[in-house]
């Protein structure tokens, strides 16, 4: 029997406030991951400050690569290709990962693989067990709210998207109104469990499309908080968090149902930082069971930004020989499909 050679991809991710390097075998098996998060630094400013993020990336970049190789007990010579996030994200932050990846590609004469950040989030679902097609992917993060249909690897058909704020952005803004620390998602998720859904908030884009909208919901919550304050009423933050989260879940549930009705799939996946939200996970798990479709929700550590998912996606791009060259540049916005 001929043994097929294993493929090791080294991934680099620096699109926002995490500097990360990872090595993944055959697009499925995580060998090592190192993440240096700046979350505590940006918490002082209530959100990510792009210039501060870039300054930390440049300090950390070679350190995460070295630590990752050490953790994997590997040398660069054993790596087959270097995958790097080239967009979307913060231009200055992306550049650090890109310049480092290009330099490694040049120094070691290894193929360079540009990876779309959202493709990375989707391929976090390929870690541990291979994805099945056709599938429907819900991408929910601080920058994205997308429904994507895939009939095979690397084929992304965007069915719908947010028309204004991303769902994670909305969570952060509501958290700020409720004086919760940045990032707001985890706090709201926790508080929602304790609260009651007593405020009737409007379900946004309550139609048959696959699109989302969160700015109206955001304004409704802000107005609600301000009105309660104006009338001297005590605000029960748990109840607001619960009402808000239940409304978000209702709109997500509705859109996923719409998509499943018109795109029959065997497999449903979620991706992105907001995919760590327990309330949303529980609801979608229930929906999949009701619809009798298989599903995969990434482990919590693969929901937030990491290089493991970039290396996982990089493996399939490597198989498809979709290489970049030394002129690769960062793209702040770029479509997946």
């Amino acid at each position: 029997m001929i043994k097929v050679k294993d493929t090791y991809i080294l991934g680099i991710e620096s699109s926002c406030d995490e500097t990360s390097c990872a090595i993944v075998k055959n697009g499925v098996e995580e060998i090592a991951t190192v993440i240096l998060s700046q979350i505590d630094i940006h918490a002082n400013y209530g959100g990510v400050v792009p210039e501060i993020a870039s300054r930390h990336h440049v300090q950390n970049i070679t350190i995460v690569i070295e630590q990752c190789l050490k953790k994997a007990n590997m040398e660069m010579a054993m790596i087959d290709a270097i995958a790097v996030t080239y967009g979307p994200g913060l231009v200055g932050s992306l550049l650090i990962g890109i310049e480092a990846a290009k330099t490694l590609s040049y120094v070691y004469n290894k193929p360079l693989i540009p990876v779309h950040h959202i493709a990375g989030h989707i391929y976090a679902n390929n870690l541990e067990k291979p994805m099945c097609f056709p599938l429907l992917a819900l991408v929910i993060s601080g920058g994205h709210t997308d429904l994507i249909y895939m009939d095979k690897h690397l084929s992304f058909k965007k069915l719908g998207s947010t028309l204004d704020d991303a769902v994670g952005e909305c969570y952060d803004k509501i958290a700020r109104v409720l004086d919760l620390p940045y990032p707001g998602g985890p706090s709201i998720d926790q508080m929602a469990k304790k609260g009651e859904n007593i405020y009737a908030l409007p379900i946004p884009m309550n139609d048959n499309s696959y699109n989302f909208s969160f700015s109206g919901l955001k304004s409704a919550v802000i107005n609600l908080v301000n009105n309660e304050k104006k009338h001297g009423k005590e605000i029960n933050k748990d109840n607001i968090a619960c009402s808000f989260q239940e409304t978000v879940i209702a709109t997500i549930n509705k859109k996923v149902r719409n998509a499943l009705a018109n795109y029959p799939v065997n497999y449903f996946i979620i991706a992105g930082g907001v995919a760590a939200n327990q309330g949303i996970r529980n609801n979608l798990q229930f929906l999949c069971k009701e619809k009798k479709i298989n599903y995969n929700f990434p482990k919590l550590k693969y929901c937030t930004d990491n290089a493991t998912m970039i290396a996982a996606a990089g493996y399939f791009l490597f198989q498809d020989k979709r290489f970049g060259d030394l002129t690769l540049n960062s793209k702040s916005t770029i479509n997946l499909d």
């Binding site: 870039s54 970049i61 070679t62 690569i65 200055g92 650090i96 480092a100 330099t103 490694l104 120094v107």
Partner: peptide
């Protein structure tokens, strides 16, 4: 230029570290 400085620094430190 903040971004400019980081380009040469990232390339130079990656070369120096790797080789």
């Amino acid at each position: 230029s903040f971004t400019g400085i980081r380009i040469a620094i990232t390339i130079a430190k990656t070369i120096a570290w790797s080789l």
